[in-house]
Nucleic acid binder design. Sequence first.
DNA 1: ACCAAAAACGAACGATCGTGCTAGAAAGGT
DNA 2: ACCTTTCTAGCACGATCGTTCGTTTTTGGT
Lengths: 193, 193
Amino acid sequence: MSKGEATRQAVLDRAAATASRIGLAGLTIGSLAADTGMSKSGLFAHFQSKESLQTQVLAYARELFSDQVVRPALAAPRGKARVRALFEHWVATGKEGGAGCLFVSASAEYDDQPGPIRDQLVRDHLDFADSVAQMFRTGISEGQFRPDADPDQFAHDLHGVMLGFFHAHRLLAESVAEARTRRAFENLLAAAK
Amino acid sequence: MSKGEATRQAVLDRAAATASRIGLAGLTIGSLAADTGMSKSGLFAHFQSKESLQTQVLAYARELFSDQVVRPALAAPRGKARVRALFEHWVATGKEGGAGCLFVSASAEYDDQPGPIRDQLVRDHLDFADSVAQMFRTGISEGQFRPDADPDQFAHDLHGVMLGFFHAHRLLAESVAEARTRRAFENLLAAAK
DNA sequence: ACCAAAAACGAACGATCGTGCTAGAAAGGT
DNA sequence: ACCTTTCTAGCACGATCGTTCGTTTTTGGT
């Protein structure tokens, strides 16, 4: 990996961490340069514009999320166990301000602002929702879920459960957030069997 | 109502609308002044600081939300009907970018930034969650919900359902968002009976 | 060791940010 | 109709925003 690519990755890593705290729109070339010990112009040269920086942060976060949540789940046995593994890894990232948080806050920030950032968020979400639905579908064909259950509805519902988790855990710092989320998830699974 | 108070309200109304689109942190004295046809300093004089403006916008949005969602629900017969009315009005505000959206995006924005704004968001949410739980509790004593159901868990779950709705409706503009949300809500009610 | 290419820097730009200060316009009670 | 209070505009400030440009340093292949 070339030197330039290495620093680009380092910047993106730091940017993703910052963005999951103060939001993707709150990112600033200046403060990001200060964080990484670079000059503003030196950092800027790696990205052609601020918007490009933001979309690259998003792409970087998606890779992170895939590594931390999706791929580990795919390692679990297909069907219900895989859905459960997905949930567990998803919760785990949420507890430590991982990549999941970035998508939650970014989605809320850009849900009404057309442009490439929003487009990318939409694409990523649809992709991920499809993956979830597919995992659930496999559970149906394995006979672990009711055959008349709706995979897309399950993906939607699970997403709502996770949004509720992020809200309760990060905003309210409720110690019960995880317990409530687990109950909600189990209820979801129970309703599908 | 004095002239000053009238313009203050007008500014807050416009600010709330803008904030529900681009976020509470995205508010700007300058652009807000341009929107309302005032000078920057003339507008600023009504609020002592930007942060004060933001907290006042939040307070204004809470009144709006109470008027549009909570109070109409309280007009419905107690118990399950009231919970259902709450849900209906909640969905209605979400469909037209009302006050509910502001809280969703603001919560995501400030969930990791300590300060008065976050504090106010937490207070408002706890208050509202208590109201929801209380409505549900009444449903229990009316015999419409299982006596061993957990009112706080219900409030948490319903909130998750609504977050899922806002996400699907506003980000993805899914036409099925409302239908999925209704199904999720009915499942929640069914599980409580 | 040389040298082209890549990477980082420093300075500067116009714009806009939030925030004061001061003078004038409007409002409203008398 | 006056006078005090309230409201609004104009102007300026330091800071920071994203971005450009020219120069200097570093890198890595030969």
